[in-house]
Design a protein around this nucleic acid. Structure first.
Lengths: 249, 249
DNA sequence: TGTTTGTGAAAGTTTATGATTGAAAAATAA
DNA sequence: TTATTTTTCAATCATAAACTTTCACAAACA
């Protein structure tokens, strides 16, 4: 495989996953360990990535985080599949709102080939959006450092200025009687407003969120279309109360 | 096969695959290696592709442009000294506005020990602000990807909601008759508004900016205090028109 | 027919690669 | 904690692949 192609592949991989191991790249490229090491060193020289023990990462700021050897989050694969399906719903020239959060973050790489305008309160999304020069409007407001999200009065005021074709939101709980819920009341307010301002609202959640409740309710079940993965047993209770788009994983 | 036809074929292939190897082209065209090499060289001259070891690729952008880190390297030493002096002016519990841009960026590390509230339109500043959990409010608005700054109507509306004890701004030109100038009209509007909303305004600029002008004026000389480094010959002309704080470097 | 342009093969040079090494760093066990 | 085992690391080297240059021949053109 071409050196240039490997480099490109590594960069793309990093954009999608934030961190990569040398093993992963070896499997993908069929190149030897030494070659990959050389590639990573070269890319580091160009400020494209940061080498860490076992592989490489994008985030200078995240270097402290001990989570490098791939978080054992078991739903990461399902999240990716759900996000990819959601991205297919986006039409060219759509104006869409993207929630902060990891599930929605997985959508961003799949938008890079479309002509869209993105509004978001998630700072993490910006890395990829910037790389692909996608038209982006950020809400203002207070910076929640731990989740890298914008919240508060400033964010609400900012959002009111926009109208969206579609919005894509994450949820921590979905429940037949309590609706869609999320832990942070500040973020709940924004989610709720996003639904109001959108023609179509979509909520992405893996099956572990079904029948769960969190602190703050931000929408009734029938206010949005749920995109989740296969779990017929649990889904049955919801099917006549709302729109559901099922992703088989 | 005709030369023109081969060239067309190579271009089409590149569009589809981003990178091609000489081997691939040889199989498709049945031409010899030297011919393909000649083709690639010619196409490179016409800026149709970039030659890489083993073949060719389309993407020039990915292999280069460390845009932000590179720009920061010119007067970096002087900038750091100016920024450090500016940071000393910040009092505990101040609410300050920080402009986007490299000079102001150098201030951020010196604020980490103080209790301050920061408002900014510069996305680059966030890395350090987040690391030290400094209270931060971001303006909303359109994301200018190349400079990583927020601009436009959204940013202006966001800013109006705040009042600042001090604001710290960068400038590209300082001139006795044209005042403070900067290239981007959108950013000039924000700078101007920041001065209005601040009790004290400070403009940071190294001595290379003296007697220079840029496209858009954002303030008169007497509207802000200039923080710059030692250059007595040039500074003399300004001394009775404005407040200047000189940093010896 | 002679001239120009394009082609392919061969020579020698440069660059990229994968295997191997001992040192260093993590992970694990005690 | 300390001692151990395992993994990862950087450096080296021989080999393979790709590179440039040159030259002779063939096709296209006037």
């Amino acid at each position: 495989m071409l050196t240039a192609k490997r480099h490109q592949l590594i960069e793309d991989l990093l954009l999608k996953k934030q961190t990569v191991t040398i093993q992963e790249i070896m499997e993908l490229t069929k190149a030897s360990e030494s070659t990959i090491r050389r590639d990573l060193s070269e890319l580091e020289k160009k400020n494209k990535l940061i080498r860490v023990h076992g592989g490489a990462t994008l985030h200078h700021s995240k270097s402290e985080e001990p989570s490098f050897p791939e978080k054992a989050s078991k739903y990461v694969f399902e999240k990716k599949a759900i996000a990819e399906t959601a991205a297919l719903l986006v039409q060219p020239n759509d104006c869409i709102y993207l929630d902060a959060g990891t599930t929605i973050y997985e959508m961003v790489p799949h938008l890079t080939s479309k002509e869209v305008t993105v509004v978001t309160n998630g700072l993490t999304h910006l890395d990829i959006l910037s790389k692909y020069k996608i038209n982006t409007y950020l809400l203002g407001g207070f910076v929640k450092h731990n989740t890298r999200a914008l919240v508060g009065h400033g964010a609400q005021v900012s959002m009111r200025k926009y109208r969206f074709d579609k919005c894509f939101l994450g949820a921590n709980g979905i429940h037949t009687s309590y609706g869609f819920t999320t832990p942070d009341p500040e973020e709940a307010l924004l989610k709720n407003m996003a639904i109001e301002l959108s023609q179509d609202a979509f909520i992405l959640a893996d099956r572990s969120k079904l029948n769960q409740t969190s602190f703050t309710k931000f929408a009734e079940l029938n206010e949005a279309t749920l995109i989740t993965n296969d779990d017929h047993a649990n889904l049955a209770a919801y099917e006549n109360k709302m729109n559901i788009k099922v992703v088989s994983t």
